[in-house]
Amino acid sequence: MTRISVRVDGASYQDDVEPRTLLVHYLREQLGKVGTVVGCDTSNCGACTVHLDGEAVKSCTVLAVQADGAEVTTIEGVSRGGELHPVQKAFHEMHGLQCGFCTPGMIMASIDLLQDNPDPSDDEVREGIEGNLCRCTGYQNIVRAVQLAAGEMRGAPASDGHVAPAVVDTAAAPHVVGQA
């Protein structure tokens, strides 16, 4: 067992962990931070993404002992004072989730991307979240959500055409040609 001290979502914890304990298992099983989930064994899916000292990492590919002395933020810690993070809000606004299992990781990766690139192109968003797999959405509404959040976080309306509310270019209304 190794003693570690971490701050997670603003609270301090000291715990004894086996060195082999993955950060994600420490978060879920010892701290009850079950908002962060495990989706694979090989660091591909990104469902477990959290911020370690401000940077997005895959918490299934970090040992808890490596987080000793670090500040961890999970999906449960990104809202402030009851106010959702703009990225969380945008995922809701743009229907950027269906089953929601990839969503915590996807949101954490997107926040990290926007820290580095506050005004990404659609392609940059897609590349920025290449480490997160979603099986439900086909990603398009996730891209829209990240763009919406980017605009809000910049304090300006977004410049890109795809940022319009999802239904605008979905055609549900304007493209209806016949109602039998």
Binding site: S43, G46, T49, L52, E55, A56, V57, K58, T61, V62, A109, D112, L113, G128, E130, G131, N132
Partner: peptide
């Protein structure tokens, strides 16, 4: 190389 998260570590 890989993705953002992996490049951070």
């Amino acid at each position: 190389v890989a993705d953002r998260q992996v490049r951070h570590r």
